[in-house]
Amino acid sequence: MSLSGLLTPAAIALAMLSVALLLAFVRLARGPSLPDRVIALDLVSILAAAIAATYAIAAEDAVFLDVAIVLALISFLGTVAFARFVERQGFNE
């Protein structure tokens, strides 16, 4: 099992994830309503977790998987908090 052998698919995966991250940021900036931005943010954090997991493969260091776990957790909590806020307050756009 060689390092460079697995680096290439990981590099491609990282590139695709970065493009997805960029697209999600565009939606974050553009989204006409608050829930749009919340969804974009949720996607950004999940993608960040995915990037961390992919990097765990690329760097052959499993500790990055813990980063992914924490990011997934935070993403969920953040989205739920936003959802409660939106429902209680309404939103002004």
């Binding site: 990981a10 995966a13 990282l14 997805a20 960029l22 697209l23 969804i39 995915a50």
Partner: peptide, 30 residues
């Protein structure tokens, strides 16, 4: 698996940008 996962993640990003409606974007992204 890595390639498949990255493809789906990319599709999620495309979907959240291109879909015309909040709920459709949510479907794609989540």
């Amino acid at each position: 698996l890595l390639m498949i996962g990255a493809t789906f993640a990319l599709l999620a990003g495309v979907g959240v940008l291109r879909m015309p409606d909040l709920f459709m974007r949510m479907q794609a992204s989540t």
